[in-house]
Design a protein around this nucleic acid. Structure first.
Lengths: 356, 356
DNA sequence: CTGTTAGCGCATTCAC
DNA sequence: GTGAATGCGCTAACAG
C-alpha cells in the first residue's frame, strides 16, 4: 500500500529515456520519437503518476493573467458569492502566480456587455472566465478567443457553439422540478400554487428562470396539479406598483398555498406578505442573498434553493489554473453543481465558504 | 489593490534581521533575542504575510505519517465516505509527503477499540485523526498523544477533556430539529410521527442519535405536537424479528404520517414499508449510504439529512497538513458541517465528492 | 530527436 | 543569532 510517489525522473529511468523526454510527452510538446513515446506511455499506464502542480508552476516561471467577465456583483447577491469563491481560490493557489482582472457588465444592458467583451482580447489575458448573459455577444467573444488560442470557461450558464475547457452550472430544470415537489409536499389540501415572475426592463437572461419554470410545471403536471398553478408577474424596479399587484393577486386568489419565485427576488414577495400579516403562504425562491437570508430568519421565506456559487467560482479558477499549467488539451468537463435546500434550521451552516 | 506578495525575505529586511530569524519566530522555534522577536512581530502586524504551504513543504523535506483511526468502513456507508474524502485530500496535497495509515476498530466492540488505540503511539505517527466512539478509551489515547506531543483532531464527534487541534462535526441537535420541521411541514392533518430507534448490541455511540432525538422533540414541542409523537425500536441485527415489530407498530398506529429514523438505517424501515405496499408514510433518515440512496430513488425514503462526510475527511487532512507544516500552536477551530437536505430530485448532484 | 543542466522561488538549515 | 548555501520536482534551453 505504500505507493511510492512517482517522479518524472523515475518514469524516465523506467522507460530508459531522460526526464526532458518524459516532460515533452506529458505536455504534448512534440519532438519525440515514436519509440520513446511508446516506452514512456507504457510506463505511464503501469505507474500512477500524479504530476505536481506547484513545482510545475515554480519551474515554468510564468505569471498568468485571467480575466473574469461577469455581471456586476451587488454586495450580498449571487455574483458576489461567485467572486468570493474566485478570491478564495486565488488565496489557496497563491503560490502560483495568477492574477485576476475583472471585466464587469450590466446584465440588463446589452451595450455594456458588448463594450466589456470587446476589450477583453486586447488585454491579452492568458485565460478568460465568462459568466455569460447574452448569447450572441458571448459567442462572438468566444470566437475571438478561439482564434487567439486563449482558453475560456463558463460559469453559471453555458452558451452553445463555443469551445470552453469546462463549464460550471446548475441543472435549473431539476431545481424547478424540486421546487415544485417541495412546495407540493409542504402544502396540504386543495390550495393553488403561484408562479410569480419578476419583470425587469431590458433583455434579462431569462433562460435560467425559463428552465426552472419548465421543471416546476413538469413536476406539477406529473403530480396531476397543472390546473392548480396560477401565474402573475411583478416589477423589480417599481416597488409601489409592485406591492399593489402582488396584494391584488393574493386577494383575488385566496386559495394560494405556495408561491414560487424563479429567481433570487423571493424577498420582495416575502416582505409584502409579511407586511400584510399573511403567514400561511409558503414562499420558496433561489439563492442565499442577504435579503433572502433575512426573510428566512424572519420566517417569511420557507426555503431557498441554492447552487453553491462560491464553489463554482473556486472551481472555475482551480480548473483554469490546472489547465494553464498542465497545458494539455483535454476534453471539456461539464460540472453540474449540487442544489442545496436551505431552510431556517440549516441556514447557519451554509454561511462559510465550502472549503477546498 | 496590487497587494504584493510578502515573502520572508521582505519581512527580514523590514525588521532588520535575517530570513532565518524570521523563520524561527514564525515557527516558534526559539533561539531568538527579544529585540529581534519584537521587531519581527511588529512587522508581522503591519503586513499581511501569507505563508506558502507548498514551497514550505518542498523545503522542509520531511515525510509525515498520519494515522487515521475510525470505525471500520463498510463500502457505501458513512465512514467510507469520510475515507474517500481523506484519500481525495492526499491526492490534492500529493506534492506534500504525507502518508495515511489506518487503525480501524469495530464501533460495537470496545475491546477492538482498545487494542486499535493501544498500538497507535508506538507506531510513532506525526499526527492522528480520530473518529471517536468510546469516551474513556479516546480520552486515554489523547492523554498519551498529548504527552508525546503528537497532534490529533476529531472527526464526526468530539470527546471532551482533550486537546485536539481542530474538530469537524455536525450539529446533530439542529439536524434533529430540522428533521422534525421537515416531517411536520410535509405531513398534513392530524397524523402522528414515529421515532423508530435502531437497537444494536454493544455500546453503540448513541450520543449522535440522542442529540438528534432531542432536537426532534424540541421542534415538536415548539410546534405543540409533543402528543403526536410515538416511539418504538427495531433491531438492526435480526431482520425477521425486526420486520414483525415494525409491521406491528404500523398496524397498531394507522394514523402514522411520518417516520424519523435517527441514524442511517432508514432503508430498513423503508424496505419494510415498501414490501407491504405502504406508500403514504414519509420516511426521513440520515446519510447518503448505498441502501438509503436506493430507497430514495425508489421513492420509499422521502428525504435524507447529510453531513458532508467527504468534506469532513478532506478538511481533516488538509487542516492536519497545514498544522504539521506550519508547526505552530494555534487555537483549535471547531468546524460545524452543513446539513444537506437531499431528496430524489437533487440527489444526482450530491454524488461527486464536493470539490476542494 | 534526446540528454544534460541550470534555475524557478521560497523556506530551511548549517556552518559560522 | 546570522547569512549563505541547499534543495524540493519540474521545466526550458541548449548542446549534441
Amino acid at each position: 500500500m505504500t505507493r511510492q510517489k512517482i517522479k518524472i525522473k523515475d518514469i524516465a529511468k523506467m522507460a530508459g529515456v531522460s526526464a526532458g523526454t518524459v516532460d515533452r510527452i506529458l505536455h504534448n510538446r512534440g519532438n519525440v520519437s515514436p519509440a520513446s513515446r511508446e516506452a514512456v506511455e507504457r510506463v505511464l499506464t503501469e505507474v500512477n503518476y500524479r504530476y505536481n502542480l506547484h513545482t510545475s508552476a515554480l519551474a515554468c516561471r510564468k505569471r498568468f493573467k485571467i480575466i473574469v467577465s461577469t455581471p456586476v456583483a451587488s454586495p450580498g447577491e449571487y455574483w458576489s458569492s461567485i467572486h468570493s469563491g474566485i478570491e478564495h481560490a486565488l488565496e489557496e493557489y497563491s503560490d502560483i502566480s495568477v492574477a485576476c482582472e475583472y471585466a464587469y457588465y450590466n446584465q440588463y444592458d446589452i451595450y455594456s456587455c458588448q463594450s466589456a467583451f470587446a476589450s477583453i482580447p486586447d488585454r491579452h489575458p492568458d485565460a478568460v472566465i465568462i459568466g455569460p448573459t447574452f448569447t450572441r455577444e458571448t459567442r462572438e467573444l468566444c470566437d475571438r478567443l478561439d482564434a487567439a488560442g486563449i482558453p475560456y470557461l463558463f460559469i453559471d450558464a453555458v452558451i452553445g457553439d463555443t469551445h470552453p475547457i469546462a463549464t460550471f452550472t446548475t441543472d435549473h430544470y431539476a431545481a424547478g422540478f424540486l421546487l415544485g415537489r417541495l412546495l407540493h409536499a409542504m402544502s396540504a389540501g386543495d390550495g393553488t400554487f403561484a408562479i410569480l415572475r419578476a419583470r425587469r426592463t431590458g433583455n434579462e437572461n431569462a433562460s435560467t428562470s425559463l428552465e426552472r419554470n419548465r421543471g416546476f410545471k413538469d413536476y406539477m403536471a406529473q403530480a396531476g396539479l397543472t390546473h392548480r398553478i396560477r401565474e402573475a408577474s411583478f416589477s423589480v424596479l417599481n416597488p409601489e406598483e409592485n406591492e399593489k399587484q402582488v396584494v391584488e393577486f393574493i386577494e383575488s386568489h385566496p386559495d394560494t398555498h405556495g408561491i414560487a419565485v424563479m429567481n433570487s427576488r423571493g424577498y420582495i414577495i416575502a416582505d409584502i406578505l409579511r407586511n400584510r400579516g399573511v403567514r400561511d403562504i409558503r414562499v420558496i425562491s433561489f439563492d442565499l442573498t442577504t435579503n433572502n437570508i433575512r426573510c428566512m430568519k424572519e420566517g417569511s421565506i420557507t426555503a431557498l434553493l441554492c447552487q453553491r456559487p462560491e464553489l463554482q467560482g473556486f472551481n472555475a479558477v482551480k480548473t483554469m489554473i490546472q489547465h494553464l499549467i498542465y497545458n494539455r488539451q483535454e476534453p471539456a468537463i461539464h460540472h453540474t453543481m449540487p442544489i442545496d435546500i436551505v431552510m431556517k434550521e440549516n441556514l447557519p451552516y451554509y454561511k462559510e465558504v465550502a472549503a477546498l
